[in-house]
């Protein structure tokens, strides 16, 4: 995030850090106990999902708090139109975790925006652990930034070509104050407040660099993909849970207990 400030704890409890080989690479957001929403391009480079981990309840990448949880990935569903009609079009990924998230005051789901959501004069924020300067500096602290949405005709004008911005994308950024998202923020949420609830309207996707404010950040439109997201979560079975097993130390103890109970039953 360029031009942001450190986010207070518990302010964005749906924020996810996507780790690849132990390093933060992308953001994501919690949809429910098993599902995280992120960007397809965060998962495209390597199909081995075993190398990815999801962290929730995290504010500082180097400090695990009381509510920090770590999850392995069970499956990743990329949108079928990813890279089909645009180099970074259809940039949506649904990530199913192997085990369920335990909600707390630091770990909560976000709402999804519907196609009919009215974005006029909305209070919108982006969050992430991406680059914080055009020189490539990073921050371990989650950054937050309030930013205005940019209407589609203006975004077309700024990017200078009609085909760059597709109907499944939206633009946001503070052109005057050079506030925008950057590398490492991808997959993270753009949320807006409606009636005291936060709805996710965008997924950080792409932009022409981060340092030129005249090229705003481009986000995958959540309302455009909301039906696909809901349908896929609904039809995908929850992962099989491992059967509970007795620990070697507990086995003999239970055997003794069972023998005692058997003796009592005779009495």
């Amino acid at each position: 995030i360029l031009g942001g400030v450190p986010a207070p704890e518990r302010k964005w409890p749906w924020q996810v850090s996507v780790h690849y080989a132990g390093l933060h690479v992308c953001g994501g957001s919690i949809l429910n106990e098993y599902w995280v929403l992120s960007a397809a391009h965060c998962f495209h480079r390597d199909k081995n999902i075993k190398i990815y981990d999801m962290y929730v309840g995290l504010v500082n990448l180097r400090v695990a708090g009381n509510h920090t949880q770590w999850y392995e990935v069970n499956r990743v569903i990329l949108h079928p139109t990813y890279e089909m009609y645009h180099p970074i079009g259809g940039d949506v990924a649904l990530v199913q975790l192997k085990t369920r998230i335990v909600f707390s005051e630091s770990v909560l789901p976000v709402c999804l925006a519907t196609p009919e959501v009215n974005l006029t004069s909305a209070n919108c924020w982006a969050t992430g652990w991406g680059l914080v300067s055009k020189q490539g500096e990073t921050s371990d602290e989650l950054q937050e930034m309030q930013l205005p949405l940019i209407l589609e005709p203006w975004c077309h004008l700024l990017y200078g070509h009609m085909s760059y911005i597709m109907p499944d994308m939206l633009c946001a950024g503070d052109i005057l104050n050079a506030k925008t998202v950057c590398e490492g923020d991808s997959g993270g949420p753009l949320v807006c407040e409606f009636n005291r609830s936060w709805l996710q309207i965008g997924i950080v996707s792409w932009g022409r660099g981060c340092s030129n404010p005249l090229y705003p950040g481009v986000y995958a439109s959540v309302s455009y993909f909301s039906k696909w997201i809901c349908d896929n979560i609904e039809i995908t079975p929850t992962p099989a849970q491992p059967a509970p097993a007795l620990s070697p130390a507990l086995g003999p103890t239970l055997s003794v207990l069972m023998a005692m109970l058997a003796g009592w039953s005779v009495l």
Binding site: P8, P13, I233, E234
Partner: peptide
């Protein structure tokens, strides 16, 4: 599974807790 919240035009994908409601409000 899908619970629409008409008052805020949002979709909640979980029935166990309210979506989009942090316990700490930003200033």
């Amino acid at each position: 599974l899908v619970h629409r919240q008409p008052e805020n035009q949002g979709i909640s994908l979980t029935g166990s807790v309210a979506c989009g409601r942090p316990s700490m409000e930003g200033k």
